[in-house]
Amino acid sequence: MSNPVTVEKYRNNFLREVEANVEEGDWVKRCMQCGVCSGSCPLGPHWEHPPQELFMMIRAGKRDEVLGSSSMWMCTSCYNCIARCPRELPITHIMHGLAHYAKRLGLSPKNQQTKKFAQKFWDNLSKKGRVNELKLGLSLYFMNGFMEGVKMSLKMQKVGLGMLKTKRMSPFEMLGGHGCKDSKGLQAILNKAREIEEAKISKFQG
């Protein structure tokens, strides 16, 4: 067990925490605040804090504001920021990393829709090793409660019918559906990977 005083001291240095625990987080200090990432982002206007602002906030130690922000959940993974960043920061990956880390710590906004969807996607794929699009779609419609789900299903009815008619969606996916043969082996791999990662992170969290 680590000393709470050290932990407190450590937590005050949010940049170091990000460097240690967030995917590609050691790049954050290299941002030169040019803002090309924000100007290049397709959902730019919808970010509470655009990427270069998040980077500065990390350096300023604004831990709660950064991790509690909905910003990084706006990333569409278009890679425009990566392609254009003059300092070659892997911004897309840092956003995914920040989002994951915030969620892991339970600090991300409660009703963030992309957070919910991204979690459902992961749960869906890790179950059998392959995504079941039908179950994923339905769980998505109903992720905000039953009534919302019925409303959403009605709204999406035509899209669904189009996909059914063209055989790009199959009702049979409801009964089991596609998956890896060795889904047990796959899960063992994922569990081990998670275990290694958690051990690393707890080392820094205290």
Partner: peptide, 11 residues
Amino acid sequence: SIGYAGGGQLP
């Protein structure tokens, strides 16, 4: 590019 909420980097 969307599995990141549940899956960390290593998984």
